[in-house]
Design a protein around this nucleic acid. Sequence first.
DNA 1: CTGAAAGCGCTTACAG
DNA 2: CTGAAAGCGCTTACAG
Lengths: 354, 354
Amino acid sequence: MRSEDIARLAGVSRSTVSRVINNYSNVPEETRIKVLKVIEQYQYEPNSFARALAGKKTDTIGLFAISMNEKENTTRIYQNNYFAPFVDAVVDTSNERGCYVLIHTVYSPDDFLKVKQAFLQKRIDGGIIVGTQKDIDIVREMVGLEYPLVLIDYDITEIMSEHLDRNHLAIVNSKDYEGATEAMEYLISLGHTDIGIICGQMNTYSGRERYTAYEDTLKRHNLTVNERFVLKGDFLKDTAYQEVKQLLSSGGTLPTAIFSANDDMAISAMEALSEFGLTVPDDISIAGFDDIQMASRIQPKLTSVRLPIYEMSKAAVEKVIELCDSQQPTFSTISFPARLMIRDSCQQPKPNHV
Amino acid sequence: MRSEDIARLAGVSRSTVSRVINNYSNVPEETRIKVLKVIEQYQYEPNSFARALAGKKTDTIGLFAISMNEKENTTRIYQNNYFAPFVDAVVDTSNERGCYVLIHTVYSPDDFLKVKQAFLQKRIDGGIIVGTQKDIDIVREMVGLEYPLVLIDYDITEIMSEHLDRNHLAIVNSKDYEGATEAMEYLISLGHTDIGIICGQMNTYSGRERYTAYEDTLKRHNLTVNERFVLKGDFLKDTAYQEVKQLLSSGGTLPTAIFSANDDMAISAMEALSEFGLTVPDDISIAGFDDIQMASRIQPKLTSVRLPIYEMSKAAVEKVIELCDSQQPTFSTISFPARLMIRDSCQQPKPNHV
DNA sequence: CTGAAAGCGCTTACAG
DNA sequence: CTGAAAGCGCTTACAG
């Protein structure tokens, strides 16, 4: 069934069929109805490729999840508790808006070729990139392609200093610095002075922001950053687990509280602590970040900073669509608030603690 | 940059460019290299739509996740612990095979239109359908479209009796019956005789299989099915939670063990029990199904039946691709083994139990 | 081995 | 208001 068939059946030309499909105003109601009826009857759907070729949009956006250091076959990206909700929300919102979404995972720089291809082959109108380790080279290249693009969680300063703030770009961030600060202030308000951190990946915006908030808050309260308590975690469960184990078995003093740059790592830390015979929050308080589903379901319930993932994803989708539609696109930036969800994993430090 | 440009630059015709792109054998090495070099140099990518229009495949498969009864805005599908791994694995495998994947969620019958459209508009070469509540009408319609289609978790008997076993269809299942039987046998071997079940959705294949295994195993051991212990759960956390609460507060006898048709519901049940002052496994044993990530991370670690999701997804992708490629497609069926992961949530019933 | 040409199924100026 | 025609960027018989 092609538009030509519909045309014949309805007794009009392909042009007219096309006009009704594309909602042109200059077709009389009578004709429109006649054509629509035939279309309905035969369940006709215009070939999307032909439409796109002839200049229409593809009505599909790309969602690219970058996770270069998750090891193959161990941690897959959608089981990563950070990505799943984004995928969820982006697909949802796009579908609501009548857009299809093409989804692609990037585990290696090679995979990035496929992302570029998706644009070059005109498979998508625009794209959303989410994930850790988006180094500037890749972003520069993507931005250089001049297709509508939304970056989730990216350092605006970097964009600005590289003059990448083009008019087909938008950045969607969360206020990680503020959120992390809130968590730190909370820990300090409980009376903690020896506070450790499990860092995220420092080559991500959020990784850096969460760490900087940690450092700044300590300094503001005239507390020192104990290098021994600054653990590398890379946002990865395993890394965090190892690092905590190591700290525990080091024999030195321990922090009375730990702020973890994400929940996955916080939970790993709890496991490590528990295996070491330490209880949360009795012995050590732990606060996480992301407020993943599991956070409120483990024992003790994890105090964590919640990000409005759904709203962020929605904004991202709306932004790409907007960028695709507008003749006069603009560069824009939007940042969503984060908020501390206080639960059971933190309490005052034991008075007898060294 | 179009093939014509490449042709000019390489001093050949578009036909030749197309031949090297499509790996025709009858182009001399010299010419091939010459063309390839130009393509490389300009990072040319053939317009996917033009290719598709001219008869090539689209190299994209659709992944449709059906979840008609998750309520809007409460449980989103990718946070549903059953779907996330599928999405993960399907995207992974497809990408490896050089395929893009178009993903779409179906929350309502209306959404199904979009799935049909994806086929009708020729956006995809084939599709995979995963999810609960795939009723036969919809399947019949999809199969009727005559596009390569793979159904994950679908009752083969139903397909056969409806004569839907067409040659562009494949079914990928897991041995839920065997897995559930294993769990039940295990519970019985521990000494349980009063075993309850939290059912999944009975209009899904896996929901029925898991229940039937429960019933059959009890009968085989001459144990009776106590209707009071058969709880409706619909695979949903909330429903399960409510039902368990209700059973607990009913005042009647309680089962000594509960088999839950999925882990989400098992965990909800554990929450309900804990709020009621009951401990797992001391007071009541619980076994789940799916072995989601969280199963091994909660306290106590949940005994659960593991499904080889990754392998199933991979098989599904390979099957669609195979169906798309072959001129002589066949109807096929494949079923993967499930296996009980014994952890800490089950033990022998207390001797003093009524 | 290779080019000219038709065709894939649309959309959209253009002309009337 | 509407049709004929050109064009989107490919692929593939066809002919040589």
